[in-house]
Design a protein around this nucleic acid. Sequence first.
DNA 1: CTGAAAGCGCTTACAG
DNA 2: CTGAAAGCGCTTACAG
Lengths: 343, 343
Amino acid sequence: MPNLTKSETAARVTIADVAKLAGVSTATVSRYLNQTAPVTEETAKQVQAAIIELGYVPFQAARTLASRRTNTLGLLLPDISSDFFPPMLRGIESASREHGFGLLISTQSGIGARVGGYHALGEHNSDGMLIFTGSLDQDELTRLHGLGFPMVLLYQSPPQGIEIPSIAFENKAGARGLMDHLIEVHHCRRIAFLRGPEKNEDSQWREQGYRESLEAHELPIDPRLLGRGGFSERGGYQMVQQWLNEGIEFDAVFAGDDRTASGVLAGLHDAGVQSPAEVAVVGFDDIPTARYFTPPLTTVHAPIERGGYEAAQQLVKLIREGVAERLVLLPTELVIRQSCGCP
Amino acid sequence: MPNLTKSETAARVTIADVAKLAGVSTATVSRYLNQTAPVTEETAKQVQAAIIELGYVPFQAARTLASRRTNTLGLLLPDISSDFFPPMLRGIESASREHGFGLLISTQSGIGARVGGYHALGEHNSDGMLIFTGSLDQDELTRLHGLGFPMVLLYQSPPQGIEIPSIAFENKAGARGLMDHLIEVHHCRRIAFLRGPEKNEDSQWREQGYRESLEAHELPIDPRLLGRGGFSERGGYQMVQQWLNEGIEFDAVFAGDDRTASGVLAGLHDAGVQSPAEVAVVGFDDIPTARYFTPPLTTVHAPIERGGYEAAQQLVKLIREGVAERLVLLPTELVIRQSCGCP
DNA sequence: CTGAAAGCGCTTACAG
DNA sequence: CTGAAAGCGCTTACAG
């Protein structure tokens, strides 16, 4: 027997069963469950007892249909597979649970996300959506906003003229601190910067911090030292090898993010360049594995899990109260390890 | 103005609107949408046109209530934050989408997963569940099985006497190949093994492969060389440092999985032990970052994404046809990089 | 191939 | 504080 067979599902226990056993109406049971109107202590006890005796669990779909609330949060992600993702998900999940919301996740954007002609995720199966940068285009964002559909943007600002709450790290300040450290403590002079994906706002702000630090220290900005790592190991690896082949000189690399830094480290290593002795390397994010890089990575700690938590929190607030913070800025912090040259 | 206000949601377009515009009954529209009965080409065209004109999107909750199908797959995970997770999710997500199922995710098991007294995930909001090892206890598994609720277990076998389809890697063969390589090619003699979390079956099978290889080569099994890394960087780091402090000798470490290997590498490095020159290190899984370790990690490639895909595939099959493969065994493959001593 | 109608399990004005 | 009843938007026997 290679196969297993599923047995029949038992008949569902409904709110009517509970009502009958408790000797009240279904309306009362509903009110008790949702705390949507006061109930005598007496009836509360009877209802509670009936619920337990029958092992009653409300049927979400019926609640949704009747109340027009799905009690579900949607999360839209591009097809990423990054160390960044798990802690973020943990934050989102814990906030969702605290408020009694389920979490519906859909990866990949655009055409791929449509099932039978409509989006896998949207107004029809969630009360609101968390949208990670790069996972939904401007038009769709505008359309959903026009519908009054609650959304919170992660690490991305809304389209021109439209107001959607968003969440972001203090990228510029973080990058600035990192650069200042490299320049003031380690006397780096030729620091390369690797940009993230095109239009990525985190990357743009980090570059801004990079430039401001350079300017503040009266160091020139050499365009040959600006490359695109695309926030990926591969990008970091290739870019650093290319620079090496072209004979471009640099004494430090600000990799844009930690994944890229991981690739840079590998690229230097494979080329026989010592790090941090010959070239210092720093990242951004402080992903869980950063401390285990060789050498351990100096980076900027971004509160990834908290970002997920806050975003979900704001979304729930937007759904329930109709309002949310326009922008939640999450503080970052310099984390000094050894890849910058510190002992 | 620190806050944003949500506007009112527009009235929903229903199947009745579509039916009226197309000049047919709602039953016909429903049949067209679900392909649950043949429809004239003529009517099909009219219905399709009406759907597009109105921008109709079926309301999932109503479908669920009427059909008793949620069209949603549940995924239960322990609170992990691992490189392992994203590729797996990608596989699950893509299989779900192919079959038109949504994906509902809940992390953390046990008490934490209960909302208002019942599980965040279960019979009431998914047609079936994917259960990652360590996220649901035997009792709950037995209860759900008793209900005839479709489930597929990931990297875990069902409780005694109960049949639930499961998915696993070819752990033993993979570990065996890895060990043989260490012994035959690199002439390692004292190879340490780091176990995963208690009761983790992947770990048990890998240890089995470890033992069999040792025996086949007539090498002794030294209990002092068996430690617990718990499939975590921290565990690998601490264990290797402890061994070093205790003066236990070893010329190689099979870390149990890649995360642990990452910690082992860091532990050796911090202790001034050269790898692979003095101690070879190997892992298991081939997580995306393994190639960027220093040195690049020799490991066993486990098809993580495919595992997620297959699991979801089996679950859909179980839901729709009532049957699924009892066990899907996923082949593994030796990936030789440099941490074993190969050039 | 198609329609009228019951029913899925809840919530929520409305009335008391 | 509580109940009777309508209604949420679909699906699905039943009948033709």
